[in-house]
Design a protein around this nucleic acid. Structure first.
Lengths: 186, 186
DNA sequence: TCCTTAAAGCAGCGATCAGTGCGTTAGGAC
DNA sequence: GTCCTAACGCACTGATCGCTGCTTTAAGGA
C-alpha cells in the first residue's frame, strides 16, 4: 500500500477480450434487433464468460457507449486541402458514406436507445473534426464560422435522413449542402 | 361462418386498456432507461395483465411503434396564415417546443432503438404537415418547394440537436432556420 | 526469472421474463 | 333483452437474465 495507484492492464488478454466483445456486439446488432442484445448473448458470441461483461461494463447501455465511442473515433481522416469549401465537401462525402452502412446505423440506433447521451457519443468526434477544419480556416484568415451552426447545416440533414427517414442521399448532396452553407462566394 | 369478417372492438374496455398501456409505457420511459421497459413492467404500471400485452403487441418494439405513432400524430395544429414564411416559422417553433420535453425525447430515443423504422414513425406526421403547408403555397401560386429539401433544412437541425447533442435551441432559431431556407425574399 | 495482483473463468442462486392453455368478462350485432 | 365471440384475466412452466463468492490465469514491474 505504497500509494493508491492501481495499475491498469490495457494490453494483452484484456485488450483481446475488449476487441472480441466489441466485435461480437456489432455483429449481433447487425443480425438482430437491439432488443435481444443482452450481456450473456454478447459474451457467448465473443467466446468470453458473461461474468467478465458484468464486471467490466455492468450494463448493456455502458457497453454500447463504449462500443460507439471507439467505433466513431478516428474512423475518418480530416481532409486538409487548404480550402474550407473543399475540406467540408470531402468530409461530408466521407460521413455520408459512413452513414450508408446498415450495420453502422444499427449500432447508432442502439446507442441512442440505450440512454440520453448515447447519441452524443456517436458525434463527439465529428464535432472535433469540424472544429479542426474551422480552426484552420480561421487561422489562415478566412471566414470564422461557429461549430454549432455548421453542424446544424451539414450534420443535421445527414443524420436526420439516416435515422428518421428512409430517403437515401442523392449524389452531389455534399456539394449542395456545403453550397447552401457557404453560399456562392467564399 | 357467414364470411371471414372478424368484427373488431375498438371501443369500451379495449380502448381503455390501450390508453392505459400507452400512458404506462410513457411514464416508465420518463422514469427509467429504456432497457428496463419490459412488457410485464408496463402491464404492472397499467394495471393490466401481462398476457394482454403479449397477445396484442407481441414485443416491446411493436408496442413502442404503436405508442410513438399515436403520440406524434395530430399533436401539432398546422398553421395557415396565408404566408408560407409565417406558417413555417410558427410550425418550427411548435416542433421545437415539442422537442424540448424530456419525456418526449425519451420516447423518441426508445422508438429509434427498437428498430429500423422507429425513427420514421416519429416524423411521418411531420412530413405530412410539411407537405400540407407546401401544397397550399404551391396552390396559391407561390414557390414550389420539395418536402425532402425543406425537411433537410428545418427538421434536420432540430432533430439532430435533440438526439445527438445537448445544445439547447436558442430563441429566434426558428426565424433563423426559415430565413436560411427561404432567403431574404419570400 | 520471480512475484504481485488485475482480470478472467467457474459454479450456482433468486428473480423475472416470454409464452401457453383455459376459463371469464363484456362489446356490439340482432 | 339475447346471443356470439373478441378481448382480457388467471395459473402455470421452462428459459434466461442479472448477479455474487471463490478459484484460476496471466500481465507487467522488480
Amino acid at each position: 500500500m505504497s500509494s493508491t495507484t492501481t495499475t491498469f492492464r490495457p494490453g494483452g488478454r484484456s485488450a483481446r477480450v475488449r476487441a472480441d466483445v466489441h466485435r461480437a456486439a456489432q455483429e449481433l446488432l447487425a443480425e438482430q434487433p437491439a432488443e435481444g442484445l443482452t450481456l450473456p448473448a454478447v459474451a457467448g458470441r465473443a467466446g468470453v464468460h458473461p461474468t467478465t461483461l458484468y464486471r467490466r461494463w455492468g450494463s448493456v447501455a455502458e457497453l454500447l457507449n463504449d462500443v460507439a465511442t471507439s467505433r466513431f473515433s478516428g474512423d475518418i481522416v480530416v481532409p486538409d486541402t487548404g480550402s474550407l469549401r473543399e475540406d467540408l465537401e470531402r468530409w461530408v462525402t466521407d460521413v455520408t458514406t459512413d452513414l450508408a452502412d446498415p450495420d453502422t446505423l444499427a449500432l447508432m440506433r442502439a446507442a441512442i436507445g440505450a440512454g440520453p447521451d448515447g447519441g452524443c457519443t456517436c458525434v463527439t468526434d465529428r464535432h472535433a473534426q469540424l472544429a479542426a477544419m474551422l480552426g484552420r480556416e480561421r487561422a489562415r484568415g478566412g471566414v470564422a464560422l461557429d461549430v454549432e451552426r455548421v453542424a446544424d447545416a451539414l450534420l443535421g440533414p445527414l443524420y436526420y435522413r439516416a435515422i428518421f427517414t428512409t430517403t437515401p442521399p442523392e449524389p452531389g448532396w455534399a456539394h449542395e449542402l456545403v453550397h447552401a452553407l457557404l453560399g456562392r462566394t467564399a
